[in-house]
């Protein structure tokens, strides 16, 4: 049994979910449409925090923490820092001439994805558990998996995905060196 499973059907969870979702969408629109770059950056932070909230609802607490630490804590600060440095804080966020085609394209893309989302017969975990497809042991193991994600992710990262993990570290190193090279005073 997944911890908290079933409570998702409750009104409270739905209200929380939709609140967070709407705020993410509104924040995203604000990022795009606000003329004030600084405020746009702040709304980006709102969107990131909302995403972290969604992660919590989705039983991915570790990801939620990472999201807050990296996106809200590091990336947002970096972006705001860049905005302050470029001195185009106000009136600095105009559109180019591609609005109409980009809008159409984004709409088409959205329609396509939504078609896929709603046309697919998803094989939902909760439904399978409710139908008793799995044995009691399996159900319990699934529940344990979602409640103890951190050690499991750690084990996966340094065992099964160790190559990708190491490559990621090299990518980060390269990014650091690249950024330093670009910004160095010549």
């Amino acid at each position: 049994m997944i911890l908290g499973a079933g409570t998702e059907d409750s009104m409270v969870i739905d209200v929380v979910f939709w609140t967070i979702s709407v705020s993410i969408i509104v924040a995203a629109l604000a990022v795009v449409h606000l003329k004030d770059l600084f405020r746009a950056a702040l709304f980006l932070v709102v969107a990131f925090l909302g995403a972290a909230g969604l992660f919590v609802l989705l039983r991915a607490e570790f990801i939620a923490v990472v999201q807050v630490l990296i996106y809200v804590g590091a990336i947002s600060v970096l972006i705001i820092f860049a905005i302050m440095t470029t001195r185009e804080v106000e009136q600095g966020n105009p559109f180019n001439r591609l609005r109409a085609p980009a809008m159409t394209l984004a709409g088409l893309f959205l329609a396509g994805v939504l078609f896929v989302v709603f046309a697919t017969e998803w094989n939902i975990l909760d439904v399978a558990i409710a139908n008793g497809t799995f044995s009691a042991d399996t159900t319990q193991m699934i529940g344990e998996t979602f409640t103890t994600t951190v050690p499991r992710i750690a084990a996966l990262l340094i065992r099964d995905y160790v190559l990708a993990f190491e490559v990621a570290s090299v990518v980060l190193l390269a990014a650091i060196i690249g950024a330093l090279t670009l910004m160095r005073d010549r």
Partner: peptide, 19 residues
């Protein structure tokens, strides 16, 4: 999907590189 579409739209239309 909605957030992605908004992001795509913004990435293609905003002139400011930071945006």
């Amino acid at each position: 999907a909605i957030v992605f579409a908004i992001g795509l739209y913004g990435a293609l239309t905003k002139r400011n590189a930071i945006t």
